[in-house]
Every structure is written in structure tokens, then in C-alpha cells.
Design a protein around this nucleic acid. Structure first.
Lengths: 356, 356
DNA sequence: AAAAAGCAGGACAAAAAAAGTCCCGTCCTG
DNA sequence: CAGGACGGGACTTTTTTTGTCCTGCTTTTT
């Protein structure tokens, strides 16, 4: 409490510190994920120009946090130490804790975790969101739990950042929905398999053709194997899902031009595993598929974790989470600030001008 | 401990913070002492150019710490709050605690307090040293204690910053030495009187002519009144004294050109109440006067507080305190860094380039 | 073994920020 | 009512930052 006041005073007296700090931490963070790496490539990762990055790197080298090696630049042990230990400190210093509180007030979520940066600007942020999501997931694991995963790059990041664990018995991982025409690596099936690998547990997959007509669907429901998998899916107690913007998802999931238009005209802004919502949180469309029943989100599921970030997704996140209760939202600063701007109406005076 | 590490990491990651922070705090601090005051005058107090000060003031205004009023600029309540509450925080942040530890190792002092800034550059620093000294003095007060004060601007600052107290009984304040030819306001006699006023206690003064021949001295020692005062002085348990550079003191105390040369040839670098020391801490000269016997510094005196600052005094402080034990040294950053540079031999890599 | 790609760091002009300097109209004080 | 100190505007000069391209080196790929 007292410490917070001091940090706040520091922020008042040296307001430029936030930009410096977040830029430099971003550099270190990217170095952490991609080392060894060169200046140019790093600049791309960070969406910064080569020159400003160079200045920062010179300073970080001078401070002994970064060293050059054959393949490019790397963190020194001190640099590594800072990346790993400073996170919670930055969290308060950059005002992320405040953002979390505001989001809790605006959305129907019990807990919120905001990661600094914007995954649209900086890839590493997706990893950080994934890391935070993975950590949260680990904490809610118990014996004999069924975990459902949706698809998407952010969920894939969660899977990737999961540690290897063999602490629990009887875990089972399943995809939340069948094939939805995404790239193989980001499909719910692949992700479920990857998570199961990390948890050393079993998994069930739901292999469906990409686009399903209504009649095919009915036919598939006759298949006892599929029905069995569906039963497992719908007995899940934990669900981890991402959120997509209606436009991008409709495109990616191969809906024809006509269909997209239709969806958007109905006011679709957000999507989760093939179901489209308008800004009131009402279902306005659905990709024909099989998997989790929406009703179960409020009944059998005990723990729903949402992972989604990036400024562009703010509207979608807000639309869905304002109307549908969730247990945890893991997002990034870009999305968080935009959500607050959209919902709050109150302008975010504190938003610092730097590019996260 | 953990918090310190975080601060250190912050310092590593944003090294320019120190300059920003100390400059801005200096501005606020001067505003605190001199408000309401204009930009030009303030620039003089801070030894900064008008333009840089203006930039800082604009920022501080934007941050709501400073407001303009008829007579110039003033602190807002928030600004006041920061000046008063941030001191201990800055202390760690600017590395003053480290300086204190180093000085303890280099000098024969039990405790050291280093105030940020340099009193040669910024007058307010003298007040801050005075404030710290006054606070320390207050803490060592007990009933029936005799306090001896030397002269000098810094001791005067201690007197000025003393709070009004009537908590103790039987206090008595005396000058450490008789008139040594300083300006009235900074004479030991005036200071003693002022302190007594603050402590609501009695005082005894030692009014002597400015320059004394040896024979006059002997004559004065026959005067029972003077002898009585001397006895009180030499029963003091607490002594607060400043330190002067040999050159300046010799000049100020009206020693003739020849005499000065003589003193300096003997290697005199420092002075305390009329006694000159070389860099080994040996007495090499003395202005004829009456007052505290040097031997008492090690016997009857329980608590000797030294207040002195400014880069130029570093040599004098080091010369005396390396060889004569003291209980507390209150100094400023300018002197502290210079002392470490002089004594340590090890270069002070950490010294930031800003003008304190 | 040759070629391609990625690397750090040098160089330099353009742009932006900071700093130095002078000025003006105003408000208070003596 | 005159003088001085006030904040703030304006302008030039200086310094710093930024964008961009190049060079020679090392590593990886072919």
C-alpha cells in the first residue's frame, strides 16, 4: 500500500519513465523469446525502427544486460534475471493492475490478467498471454478433470507455454469443437493433443470435415464414436477458449462472401468456436459443427478461461464478456485499454503515448 | 531487501531516471523553501539556466505539483506531499544510502547522513543538511544536557531548522569557542542563542574581542565570569560543529597574508572552531581564542555531530574525520562523492552526470 | 567449397527536441 | 506611480534523435 504510493509518486515525478521502461522491457522480452537474434529481425518483432532499437540495445549493452554473440544478441544472466523477476514489478508500475480492476468492473469476469504490450504490435505478447493463461490453467487443475480447448493462435500459445506436468491423474483434454477450417497448427484438435502431451494425459479428438452441411451433421450424430467424444467434451469442467473478431473469423472459416455480409448485417462482432455474437452478446450465427453445447458453459463447466488480446479484438471481447460470465480473462494492454475506451466512455487519461 | 533489488533493477533499466528525479526533486525542494518565487530567481537558486528550469516547471505544472500564483510559483498540496514524503525513497533511489555506507568505511564516524545535492550549487541543500542535523540533535537530547555549538553557515542552518521544543528540562546551550571574527549571524554565540530559543532553555555566551593576542588571553582567563562560562562549555555532552577549508577560514578569520601562507605551508587543509589540521589530521595552527579544550572531544563529550557539505570541503572533512572519531556526520552528496573519490581511490562509476 | 543470409557497427543527412536569449504586458510593492 | 519581479511568447542556435544505407564479418545453407 505504501509502496504503491511511492511508485505512483515516482510516476508523477518522472512520467517518461513508463515509456522507457516498457520499451526496454519489451526489447529484453523479445530477446528472451528469440535469442540469439539480430537487430533487424528484432526490430520487426517489436514494430520499432532499426535505429531506435539500436540506441536501446547500446544502452542495454552498456548496462550489461545484453551481449553480442556469433548468432546475434543474447541476454546476459543479469538480463535474464531482469526479464524473469521484473514482471510483477512492471505490472504495478505500468498501471496494469489498475487496468485489471477496471476490466473487472466493466466485464462479467471474476479475474483479469493484463499483460503489457499489444500482440498485434509485438508477437512476444502472445507468448506472454499464453504463459499467463497456462499458469492459470495449471492452478485450476485437479485429478480427473476434462479440459476443453478451442482453436486459435492464442490458445496455441497457451498450449505451447504449458509446462510438462505429471502431477495429476485422470486428466483428459478435448477440443471444444470439431474442425473449423483453421490452419492445422491452430486447430482445436492439434492444441488439445499438444496440451495432453504437456500434461502426460489422454485426449480425445473430434475429426470432422471442414465445412458441414446440416444433413451431414445429422448423419455424423449417428456415429457412436463421435457421440461418445461429444459426451466427453460436454462433461468438461475446464474450458480455455480464444475470441475472434467476426470479420476475420468469418473469412478464415471459409464462409462465402454472401454469408459474411449476412453475418455482419446481423451485427456480428465476435466469435468463439464457430458461434457469432453481436455487440449485445446475442448469438447471431453459427458455423455448422459439433462440440460443446452452449448451455454447458453455464452448467457443467466450472472454470472458463478466456485468452485473447490485440487492440482489434477489443470490441469482440467486450461484446462477449459483457454478457457472458467467465472466470478468467487473460488479455494484453492493447486490448485492455481499448475495451476501457469503448465501454467506459471515460477517456483513459493515463494512457501513455508510447507504442507499448 | 527485495524492494531494494527492484529499485536497483529499475535503476539499471532506466539509468536516466536518476537525473530526472533529482532535478525535479531539487526544483520542488527549492520551491518548498522559497515559495512563492519566480522562474529567474529559482534558476539562480538551483544553478540551472532559466530555460531548462522552465521545461521542468511546465512539466511539474502539468503534473499538478506546481501552480502559479500572484507572487510567482508555489507547490500545490500534492507537490508539498511529494517533497515531504519522497525524501526517504529518493534516498535509496539516488544511491545515498550506499554513499553513507562507503563513508562509514572510510571515516571514523558511527553514523553518516548524506543529503542529495551540493550546497555550493544549491542553497537549499544547506537547509536540508541543517534539517537532518537538527533532527539528529533532537533525538540525542536528554534532560540536563549542555549543548555546544560552533559557528558557520551550516551550523546556523541547523539552528534555524530546529523545531521549537520544550520537552526537556535543564538544557543549556553554549558556543564552542568565543568570537572568531565571523559575520554576526553565523557566530557561535548567535547560534547558541538561537538554539536556546528553539529549545526554550538557558544559554551562556562567550563574548570575546575578535583577535586576541596571547597576553590578552591570559588576562581574560583571570575573569571569574569567563572562567565560569568556560567550565560550562567544557562540561558539554553534545557538540555540533561545522568544518571549514583552511584557506577560506584563514581568510575569513582575518589572519594576515603572511600567516595564511604559513598555515598552508604547514599543510593545513581543514579547520574546526579556530583549530587548523593538516591532511593527516594533526593540529598545525590555531587562532588564539578560548572555549572547548580539544581533549574534551574524547572525554566529556558523548555525542559529536559534524555538519558540513559542499564539494570544496571534501578534503577538509576527510582530513579531520579520518583521524578523529565522531558520532555523526551530516553532509551532502557533493562532498560525499568527492570524499570517496579522494579517499577511495576507486573511481565512482555510479556518479551520474547530472548536476545533482 | 561456394553461396546466401544474417549479423554488428560505421557513416551521414534529415528531423526533432532542447537550450540560450530577448522581449513583452502584467501585477505587486514601495 | 515607478521599479522590479512575475509568467509566458518568440526566435535562433545547438544538440540529440532518427531514418537510411553501406561494409566487412560470421554462420548457415546449398
Amino acid at each position: 500500500m505504501l509502496k504503491d504510493m511511492r511508485l505512483e509518486q515516482l510516476n508523477i515525478l518522472v512520467p517518461e519513465m513508463k515509456s522507457f521502461l516498457s520499451l526496454r522491457y519489451r526489447v529484453l522480452r523479445n530477446l528472451y523469446y528469440f535469442q540469439p537474434v539480430g537487430r533487424r529481425l528484432l526490430a520487426r518483432y517489436l514494430s520499432e525502427t532499426e535505429r531506435v532499437l539500436r540506441k536501446e540495445l547500446d544502452l542495454l549493452k552498456k548496462q550489461g544486460l545484453v551481449k553480442v554473440s556469433r548468432g546475434g544478441m543474447e541476454l546476459t544472466p543479469e538480463g535474464m534475471n531482469i526479464v524473469l523477476n521484473m514482471r510483477p514489478y512492471l505490472h504495478k508500475l505500468l498501471g496494469l493492475t489498475d487496468l485489471e480492476e477496471k476490466l473487472k468492473g466493466l466485464l462479467q469476469v471474476k479475474e483479469v490478467i493484463v499483460v503489457s504490450g499489444d500482440m498485434e504490435v509485438e508477437q512476444a505478447v502472445r507468448y506472454e498471454v499464453g504463459r499467463a493463461g497456462a499458469q492459470a490453467l495449471c492452478q485450476s487443475l485437479r485429478d480427473n478433470v476434462v479440459i476443453a480447448f478451442s482453436g486459435g493462435t492464442t490458445c496455441a500459445a497457451v498450449a505451447e507455454m504449458m509446462p510438462f506436468i505429471s502431477e495429476y491423474k485422470g486428466l483428459k483434454v478435448v477440443p471444444a469443437r470439431g474442425g473449423l477450417g483453421e490452419e492445422i497448427h491452430y486447430q482445436a484438435n492439434s492444441i488439445a493433443a499438444r496440451v495432453a502431451e504437456k500434461l502426460h494425459c489422454s485426449y480425445r479428438l473430434l475429426h470432422l470435415p471442414d465445412s458441414l452441411a446440416e444433413e451431414t451433421l445429422q448423419a455424423l450424430l449417428q456415429d457412436p464414436k463421435i457421440v461418445e467424444v461429444l459426451e466427453v467434451i460436454n462433461s468438461a469442467q475446464i474450458l480455455v477458449h480464444g475470441i475472434g473478431t467476426a470479420r476475420e473469423m468469418a473469412l478464415r472459416r471459409g464462409a462465402g462472401g454472401e454469408e459474411i455480409k449476412n453475418l455482419l448485417e446481423k451485427g456480428a462482432v465476435g466469435e468463439i468456436f464457430g458461434v457469432f455474437f453481436n455487440c449485445e452478446g446475442e448469438v447471431v450465427g453459427q458455423v455448422p459443427s459439433l462440440g460443446l453445447y452452449l448451455e454447458n458453459l453455464n452448467t457443467t463447466l466450472k472454470n472458463i478461461i478466456v485468452v485473447a488480446g490485440g487492440k482489434r479484438k477489443a470490441e469482440a471481447i467486450a461484446a462477449i464478456l459483457r454478457n457472458h460470465p467467465r472466470d478468467l480473462l487473460v488479455t494484453d494492454e492493447g486490448a485492455a485499454r481499448e475495451i476501457i475506451r469503448l465501454c467506459g466512455g471515460e477517456r483513459d487519461k493515463e494512457a501513455h503515448s508510447c507504442k507499448y
